[in-house]
Design a protein around this nucleic acid. Structure first.
Lengths: 221, 221, 221, 221
DNA sequence: AGATAAGCGAGACGGTACGTCACGTCTTTCA
DNA sequence: TGAAAGACGTGACGTACCGTCTCGCTTATCT
């Protein structure tokens, strides 16, 4: 899971040429240390949250010197972004059931599960931190949101091809309408965030748009 | 606007007897100091955000001793919550035009304006802080979200009474579907948050539900 | 011994008016903390020397926060200078026996004793540090050397008055000739520094100058 | 000047057999690197002094890897001692004029010149460092002081042979009395160190001892 | 000619201490 | 008794060097 870490060096490193290269001079970066740091960040983030997480504690837990942390990550934000990347959530892929409503509601339920799990804390810490750190919120967009968005586009395109969905629908608007409410309940916690909510949400937003329910006609009015 | 502040001491203080009381002995609490503190918090929040805001800086800017801040607010969260309260947004009321779509889209546009203004920073700071502080997010729910929600309920009820909306609609689900996308774009900043988005969002979510567009039938299907 | 510390605030403090003043507002400086710090510096200096002495260790031993040390002393040098001042050496006064030779040799022997004691380490640390710190060496001149010099001048003047010494003698040259060799052996450690050396040194330098002993003849023979 | 450096490895290395040996296998030690290191130490010592001199900076300036420095010198002291050795001062030899007073005052003036030059900083750094490093002060004794002392002995012996000086004079005491004041002014900087001082010092100490001048009388008057 | 051995640069590593900053508490004087 | 002033212990910050280590490369001698 972490093996790709040195391949995709993310925030703290420049992307190296992909072509076969000689190893640079000097002592090579310790993979073990990097893994330990990332692991410590993940653990501590779940335990105490972004605000309280101190790099000092990360270094101590990873049995690594503080300098090593600072050598590779310029600030707490980058550290968390990378850690978050490393804990990438494979379970958030979209299925291909032949029905948009099914595909999306299924994935939505998985997302809700992640948000309710201890990893949710990681996500909320990242978004919270992002409110005063441009890099951090961009990291979240690029590494978490966008990959999922791309899959979502494909899912919607399949629906269009199948004739389930009008080709005139604004995908971005639709997807934000579907996921926005989930993020809102996740972050503001004013109401319950569970499977039922996800299903009802899908019904409310998606059903009117699917040809099966013939709501596309209402659209054209 | 701030005058009622010492009357409604909010989070950090016990509510004092409302009955006429004799002034207690000793130096009376300085109203001026309180106002200066709150003003400083608001200014600083817009300038630097929640994370960076230091009570030390607040005290210095308000020309107040640190102890005075601590005497009245137990922590940064309470301080921000109160400051936020003081900057209450009067312009977010719902109009009553006779059309749900109009009423809500109108208010939505105002909300978007607030979010895009410097006061938006205040809101995002509050939500961000709330991710690691229960009190803070609850303050946001109670003082910002709920008051607006109550008005929104009334707006929807009027629509039901007018026959625009089915009485079976889940108000909470509907409102989160309407506002969630705005919060999402506001917090994650992955896409533009403007008037057009608000209007399209309203159209997408609300039109299918309003009898005028006859989409209520599709619902019953 | 330390009581005069807050009276003569030395390096780190401005000298306050001697006139009766009201105490300033705010928590007063903790005398106890200051004493503990100075005591720790003295102990550590004798144990490990200037180079190794870390402010971190001083703070820890004095059970004082590092910030408190830095609040009052800008750097290690000032800290040591003050500590040195506090350990001021009362025993280095000149006697008044009626004989220059006696007066000076007596005091010289005391100086040698101090240099050979654990407090010698303090002095050598101060001079060593002074080689790369102007303030430090100046502190040594002002607080250690000069006070003694003034007494030495008086001792020499008494000798002139008594007719023991010519009034044409350059006091500064004479005193450096008397004390320089002691400092040299103290710092370079190339030869033994003891009572005999001090006595022989006095004889060598002083006797030829005193009219009473006419010892230049005995020497030149 | 530096060429003998790898031949006499000094402090940091065991002295190798002087007998003709075959060169060992392996890459030979880079003479160029050694010279660059020593040069850098000398430069930096004059610029910043012992305390601040960092091996990291030495390596960087010498365009040499840190490991290379550590391979050959165990610590900063050894490094400085060797560098000092390399900068050996040829001009501090004693002349042979036929007059002790002349011989010694002449050399003293040269010493004062060296102390006042940028190389003086080197000497003071060495002595300062020596206050907390036995090796260092011993290096100073052996490499700087002693060679000069041996020459001074010869100068004094010539004076005895010529009848200028009594054979009963304690050479060590006399030499420390002559040079101690110079070291004192050099290190403590409490008074001017110049040609006049050196001359007056010689007069004061040496004249009473030389039979020729009988100047003790003029002095004692 | 190839094997073996050491020196070299580069630079990452675990550490220690630096000097600064803000925390939240405290102790004083003045109003 | 509240407020201002400001010192206090605490603890993390990010930096600088320490002295050690692992690399790949170079330069020599030895087989």
């Amino acid at each position: 899971m972490l093996q790709f870490f040195s391949v995709t060096p993310t925030t703290s490193q420049k992307i190296r040429d992909a072509l076969p290269r000689r190893r640079p001079p000097g002592r090579p970066r310790s993979e073990q240390a990097q893994k330990a740091i990332v692991r410590s960040v993940l653990e501590l983030l779940e335990e105490v949250g972004f605000q309280v997480l101190s790099i000092e504690a990360v270094a101590e837990r990873a049995k690594v010197s503080k300098a090593t942390v600072y050598r590779w990550w310029p600030n707490k934000a980058a550290l968390i972004a990378d850690a978050f990347h490393a804990s990438a959530v494979e379970e958030l892929r979209f299925p291909n059931t032949g029905s948009v409503l099914k595909d999306i509601s299924e994935q939505m339920i998985r997302l809700v599960k992640v948000f309710r799990s201890s990893r949710g804390r990681l996500v909320s810490a990242l978004i919270a931190g992002g409110q005063s750190d441009r890099e951090l919120i961009e990291a979240f967009q690029q590494r978490f949101l966008l990959p999922r968005r791309r899959e979502a586009y494909q899912t919607l395109e399949r629906a269009v091809e199948r004739g389930e969905l009008s080709s005139e629908v604004d995908f971005d608007l639709l997807l934000d309408t579907l996921y926005g409410p989930i993020y809102m309940r996740f972050l503001i916690r004013h109401d319950s965030l569970n499977r039922e909510f996800a299903l009802n949400l899908c019904d409310l937003v998606l059903k009117p748009l699917t040809s099966r329910g013939k709501p596309s006609q209402s659209k054209s009015n």
